[in-house]
Nucleic acid binder design. Structure first.
Lengths: 233, 233, 233, 233
DNA sequence: TATTAAACGAGACGGTACGTCTCGTCTTCAA
DNA sequence: TTGAAGACGAGACGTACCGTCTCGTTTAATA
């Protein structure tokens, strides 16, 4: 939790602890949200319990809406209509459209994206970048990330949440790979790892956002080749 | 002109010819707009002529508004009020708020940004990246570019215009430097230049957009160091 | 309902049935609207119910605005501001400013306007015309009717609504008086009643609209005198 | 001239003198405007003289526009476009759209509408009312008068001009007929003539404005019949 | 015959109001 | 208490015209 938001189960935040444990807790319901760890539905008080189907409908509708209509057509009102849900229900659980988009994105994409387990740094890096680029290029994920990043430029909470729940979660994994390669002598000892990571991924996000050149496989091959040469011992 | 917009002097576009010639024609008036080449104010028919002061007031107000209020507070209505101008006048010349932002940005930033003229590639690159990073970090330019890029995610025309009038215009210069270094043997012969450029600048724009790490001078030093190593012969 | 408007409670229409029963159903809420007959608030589904205070505020503000500023100053925007209400709320219930004016007028004037109960036709007629003329001359009603009639020249729905809800409702009463006088031998048997009514009231509305001569009591006396002579057996 | 308007040849006004002489001076150009009396074009200074064709084009376009599009579609901007004329030219000669409409109406309708010259009052009256009703019913005149009257509800100058240049001009003729009939004993001696005129014409304008019953020939026959009975000695 | 001032077309300009859209909040009823 | 429905105040959107103001061009009386 960022602590800035007063609602008990709001859809933005939950970064620090998760980053450390590598586990991600979704604000969405069971089944959709849980990954590797049991979690009680937190039953408070008496009233009607939260409807898992409703939450799922909202997140699914969000992905569809974003994919079909793009950022401009992604409104809370339209989302509510598409999901067959009251606006109140959305506002009860998420503070903004960006927060919904982020949750929808994470719940859809997170399950994917493995990390090739190789000892060869070059192979591992290329494999991972290729997986990311293909997700951005061939699935709705690209469109959605663009939307979230755009939205985040005017929404500090969303920016922070995206950083913590997507970027940092992936960087953590990446960082480990870089460190292992450093220890095994494949990368130079004095490497500034954050900059090194940006060297590779910055280019990917840059093409995603500006689209000035395609996110081709060839691009990934060249990019990782140049990067590995630049970072090795 | 992109040819997609029917208005003779609309604020987005003017890409193709300019990219080729390296000359940029602003939709704004003389003085503001001209760079190195005489240009007729394009007298069309009779009517009252466009008011240079008004255009300037709008662009100035746009920079102020964006800097102070950010993307969220940058509305056509607010801009008109601040510039002391009718909304109609803005819509007459620009198709969207993004287009105004782009023109305002270019007319404010373009005059700056030199290119260090050195034969040493590493020095030249570092110098230029440093200049860009400092502009993004220490002037309103960074905020404005973020706003434009965000806006461009939902506005294809703006995306195209930003690409053509800012990115491409700068890449053209950069490309020349990369090629010269290639010819002098400082860079490998089979270099895929577009990817190489992204290797460097992608990281800069990534940090600009996500803000996960600061755009420090040290970052630039490391970044260009790694890149140069990765790209050399 | 005229059936031309798709909204369940739109401010124009509701003519036919009402004319027949002499009962008028306002689109406004209870208290304001009901006249002599119980009526369910038409509960549709769940959502928040219409706010009677808001409706009243709008109609009151409409009367004030029309009275003070006249037709030219009677804008939806100004009305919303004066009533402390969002424009949306007005557009939700009325299709045009004319419709608001009509409702405001009817809800303000309807409660008044008795009909002298006499067996003498001449007396009854003069009494009623005098009441109408005095309302037009001495209360805001005149100004408002002029505005509505003006607006109706370019708005067929409003014209129809004004006809049905004001004119026809009053003609129905008048027609009865004329018929009774006809049966008691005070008026000629072959009287074309519609024309007869226009003979009297046409002159009143004519002076209201053109103001070429004052709507004086003396005018009413002469007018009804001439008319009674012209229509008697 | 009303004296309220400062422009030398403005399209509203010219009431008093004309009413007295029965002659109507149009602010429009020769040929179109003059009726029975020579009039100097009032040449002031040297410049280019007013273009009769332009004026005619504007008035013709005004009639067409009003007839086709109605009051709502009758805008200065649209009129200028249709007439192939600059807005300035219209504003130079008329203070408002109502003024143009009035001039257009008068220049189109005035030439018509004779007055049957009979000694029998009933015949004369019926003849004239019939002519007016047919003009309102079967020509664009009706539509245009409705537009002008509507506009006049929010434009005192137009109201005054309409009264003086159309209503009063016709009443003057009518008054003479009523007086002659009074002298010849066909109408009662103590007749209040203004009211008497309204008795007849009020009904016509009422039906024109409200359209609650058709402006049929039969209506005219009954109307004048009842009126004549009511006014005779 | 050249001058010159008004008329004229075009259209830029600061405004106002339009009617629509979406926001985020609030209120009501049903589950 | 959740959730769907939807009323509500707020305010920006992009458009249409308003009436005023330059512009450059045309036209005809005047000097």
């Amino acid at each position: 939790m960022t602590g800035k938001l007063d609602h008990p189960a709001r859809g933005i935040g939950s970064a620090d602890a998760e980053a450390a444990s590598g586990v991600h807790r979704m604000p969405v319901m069971d089944g959709h949200a849980e990954h590797g760890q049991a979690e009680a539905p937190v039953q408070r008080g008496r009233g009607r319990t939260r409807d898992a189907a409703t939450t799922a409908a909202i997140l699914d509708a969000a992905m569809e809406q974003l994919t079909e209509k793009g950022l401009a057509g992604f409104t809370i009102e339209g989302l509510a209509a598409r999901a067959g849900v009251g606006k109140t229900t959305i506002y009860r659980w998420w503070p903004s459209r960006g927060a919904v988009a982020l949750d929808a994105f994470l719940s859809a994409v997170e399950p994917q994206v493995p990390y090739p387990d190789t000892d060869d740094f070059a192979t591992a890096l290329q494999g991972q970048v290729l997986a990311l680029v293909r997700a951005f290029r061939d699935t709705p994920a690209g469109r959605v990330v663009r939307a979230i990043l755009a939205e985040a430029q005017a929404d500090r909470d969303l920016a922070e949440a995206f950083r913590a729940r997507w970027l940092e979660s992936r960087r953590a994994t990446g960082r480990a790979v870089f460190r292992k390669a450093q220890e095994s002598g494949q990368l130079r000892q004095d490497l500034e790892i954050e900059t090194a990571i940006d060297l590779v991924y910055g280019a990917v996000y840059f093409r995603l956002m500006t689209d000035h050149q395609p996110l081709s496989d060839e691009f990934v091959v060249n990019l990782t080749d140049y990067a590995v040469r630049g970072l090795r011992a």
